[in-house]
Amino acid sequence: MTATVNSRLPGELADATSSDASLRRFLHGLPGVDQVGAEARAARLGTRSIKTTAKAYAIDLAIRMVDLTTLEGQDTPGKVRSLASKAMRPDPTDPDCPATAAVCVYPDLVGVAKETLGDSGVQIAAVATAFPSGRAARDIKLADTADAVEAGADEIDMVIDRGAFLTGRYLQVFEEIVAVKEACARPDGTSAHLKVIFETGELQTYDNVRRASWLAMLAGADFIKTSTGKVQPAATLPVTLVMLEAVRDWREATGQMVGVKPAGGIRTTKDAIKYLVMVNEIAGPDWLDPTWFRFGASSLLNDLLLQRTKMLTGRYSGPDYVTVD
């Protein structure tokens, strides 16, 4: 299992995953995060002023990056259908308004989303592996994943076992990610994209966020994602900054790009633009694309649409003019 993973990595990274001890040695050997520095840098980048045409561009880009999410116990097929319709045409009054990147639902609703989305190009992301807690036996998690992929999910959002991670059983987390990655495979040889959720609100320190990022990338994650949205604090700018640094360093070491997805707590256009500035400054402009950066959000889209309308019409719009989700 690890052999296939290791074959695409340079020697020293491949060695890191050979045993629990070497993995721990590698992760604990990563440089520590300067907490004050990271927070100050994130705050400073948040003060950049993005106006007029740049703002219009940023808003459209942010809309294209949204994973429109509904993850409630009360989700119904009807709600998922309306959400999927909204993802395809966020602003029905304006054909130029781009579609969102994906809709994100529970696995049992993937089929419903698929019916509505068809071949519109909007991806279907499903949360799997006993989301949001991740507290289930591995075969159940794998069955959960395979089920979602079979139902037509293009992307799988898995949660890591935070209990194992915090106890220091890194190899267990690693192997689980590898196993889920394999469960993402489809019969035709393609594979669903795997996003690995850390639930950074439970990881306590930025050092742990950095370790989790490297761990997930070593295990073959296509995306690393901050949070489930069920735990506070969810995505924050400094946490995302640490993760963006990790994917930047990973590309330097391996030549491979990994995506980043902050999720939860991003509600306003202003917040979204702060993230985009940070992506550009930390990871680089290559990441300013829905393939490599996503927002996990539900209410953010409405605010983006209101701001977009304001830019186009020159007058402020209001919540009466967007859907109630």
């Binding site: 020159g314 007058r315 402020y316 719009s317 209001g318 919540p319 009466d320 003019y321």
Partner: peptide, 9 residues
């Protein structure tokens, strides 16, 4: 003018 044109007023 901003208040007069505001769609949520």
């Amino acid at each position: 003018p901003w208040l007069a044109s505001h769609m949520d007023v």
